[in-house]
């Protein structure tokens, strides 16, 4: 465990303002994710696990505490720098896939490379390579509507990995899939974790899903309980 953490949260809190009242979503959480980790964030809804995922992914900033992504304190980053950091170091996989509906699989996968300033030819090449890796090399030109749920989530995983991030954050990645397809998707995440060393954090309320990870982070009422 000598490697620098992919992301590190130290005593992080996050409050939301609801009608002038501060509602705490995270009340002092410390989490370290190292390269190659395979962790599950487990907890009931409202426990703060989604808020934690948004913070670890640089989509949000903590109210207090220190958050370092790839060694950089997010307090010192502008919105533009944070966007660039997200682009290069974080990959997101969502429960509802979040694919662009009118766009082919290969162009969906290539989307993060558009914001990385990669040329079109190179984008296509890398997107095709990743789709091949997730087993969709034969579905390059299909649109999301022409793909099954499991295939759509594979496209989303390929998109999350296309910029070569060090951390992949998956928010209920099997939530919209039947159990067999869900198991396949988890298997794919585990395989990618083993083969390329990308850290994977799966946010879930499903104990069976969490049990497959090498490490469980249990949350309740905005705190890490185990």
């Amino acid at each position: 465990m000598s490697q620098a953490p992919a992301v590190e949260a130290v005593d992080v809190t996050r409050e939301y303002q609801l009608g002038g009242v501060a509602v705490p979503a995270l009340r002092g959480v410390s989490v370290t994710i190292r390269p190659g980790d395979y962790a599950a964030v487990l907890g009931p809804s409202g426990s703060g696990k989604s808020t934690l995922m948004h913070l670890l992914g640089g989509l949000d900033r903590p109210t207090s505490g220190t958050l370092r992504i790839a060694g950089r304190d997010v307090r010192e980053l502008s919105a533009t720098e944070l966007a660039g950091l997200r682009n290069r170091t974080i990959g997101f996989v969502f429960q509802s896939f979040h694919l662009l509906a009118r766009t082919s699989a290969v162009d969906n996968v290539a989307l993060p490379l558009v914001y990385a300033g990669v040329r079109a030819g190179e984008r296509r090449r890398r997107a095709e390579e990743l789709l091949d890796r997730v087993g969709l090399g034969h579905r390059l030109r299909h649109r999301p509507g022409q793909l099954s749920g499991g295939e759509q989530q594979r496209v989303a995983i390929a998109r999350a990995l296309v910029t070569g991030p060090s951390l992949l954050l998956a928010d209920e990645p099997t939530g919209n899939l039947d159990s067999a397809t869900g198991a396949e998707v988890l298997g794919l995440l585990e395989q990618l974790n083993r083969e390329s060393g990308v850290a994977v954090v799966v946010v879930t309320h499903d104990r069976d899903v969490a049990a497959r990870a090498s490490r469980q982070i249990r949350m309740r009422d905005g705190l890490v309980v185990a």
């Binding site: 989509l59 979040h98 662009l100 914001y115």
Partner: peptide, 16 residues
């Protein structure tokens, strides 16, 4: 809105 959120998540800046 969701498309915009997704684009931002994968690295689109406000300006983009």
């Amino acid at each position: 809105t969701r498309e915009i959120g997704l684009r931002k998540a994968v690295g689109a800046r406000t300006r983009d």
